[in-house]
Design a protein around this nucleic acid. Structure first.
Lengths: 203, 203
DNA sequence: CAACTTGATTGTTGTTACAATTTTCAAATG
DNA sequence: CATTTGAAAATTGTAACAACAATCAAGTTG
């Protein structure tokens, strides 16, 4: 070993030669890279993704000496993406969503006293009740002023808002084109129940 | 306006106050990020992954308005009355009811693809969707012209009616006081799903 | 002369730094 | 009391940096 640096430095090795240095694409991926910023929770998934790319680069690099057994038929190997890369949308199958909801439980408090009625007509359109909507009716709720109720007037089933003021009982429609029903003395008001929810099916 | 900087600078606004500046986790992912270096061919996959994380962050951020269906417990069938049952008091215990109904079964056709959203605002009031209504959303339904959809525009979750005519895509509000959203070229429309039912709770 | 060593060179790679942007709060304004 | 405004603090894409690895040609050794 020559420990004197001066001598060697003068007629130095290497130098600004062409084709010196490591060759392009000699990294772990065999291709240029970029820096990106990602959330920390994506790190594990990303590491899986990177490992996959490294494997593929390794395979490409040694493709002249490495062979794999032919696959039985075209059992089209799909790329083994980490987790659900393709998804992109929140999926109900995902687990880390806090609240889960049962419509039955959510909308029905008194099971024994609840039934459904399909609305007919447009007399309650301003209350958001359209023809064909499904109404959830609770018979155990005591109807008071302001409630939307299912009532029987002259043998007809109707949905109206119950008004009780100064001893006068009315069934008001929520549509200016419909008349309110003022309850006469001899008329009997039969209230089947209070509407606790209305459901509009669009499809 | 005081254009003299000296005055304002002295008792300047802001300053090194506590709790000033934007809050931690207010980014698109709701969590800290890191920079990593990845091969270029992984960029598309990474973008999908990141989009997914952004969606999940959005979902987390709106967890007070987003729900998923519960597992089918003992889905209680409740009586479903037809409208013409004029006579006396029907009881849910009665037998001569037409059908018995489970809301979960009736309103949810694809459990794996269904979630709930609580509506905010009154932009769809003429479609019978009011502030606070519960929307049943099915991701497996292909959105077409006329459907009411849940969409993400500029990171905001909205309910609108989808219009597609002559190559133009619009999100129309059903309330004259709200402007329609005309989709610009560079704007990306993300439709989370189609609203299959809306539920208005009255009690 | 073939095999090995050596040093400069150049691409890779993980991380840090930076600048532009966005979000937020409280004081100031009307 | 609602709105405006300026500074502060975080986000975010990208540039820069430093340590490292690979490569080649000249030099050295047997």
């Amino acid at each position: 070993m020559n420990n004197d640096p001066g001598d060697r430095m003068k007629n130095g090795h290497g130098g600004a030669r062409p084709n010196a240095g490591r060759t392009r694409g000699s990294g772990a991926y065999g291709e240029p890279t970029r820096t990106v910023r990602i959330p920390e929770s994506a790190m594990t998934e990303l590491h899986a993704l990177l490992e996959q790319h490294r494997q593929q680069a390794l395979l490409r690099r040694h493709s002249d000496t490495l062979f794999l057994p032919a696959q039985a038929a075209e059992s089209a190997r799909l790329p083994m993406y980490s987790h659900r890369v393709a998804a992109g949308f929140p999926s109900p199958a995902d687990d880390h969503v806090e609240a889960r909801l049962s419509l039955d439980e959510h909308l029905i408090s008194h099971r024994e006293a609840t039934f459904f009625v399909r609305a007919i007509g447009n007399s309650m359109i301003q209350a958001g009740i359209f023809d064909g909507d499904l109404l959830v009716v609770d018979r155990s709720v005591t109807p008071v002023h302001g409630h939307i109720v299912i009532a029987v007037i002259d043998g007809e089933l109707t949905v109206k808002r119950l008004h009780q003021r100064d001893g006068i009982t009315m069934l008001k429609a929520e549509n200016p084109r419909y008349r309110d029903i003022l309850l006469k003395e001899e008329q009997e008001l039969r209230i089947w129940g209070v509407v606790t929810a209305t459901i509009k099916q669009l499809l």
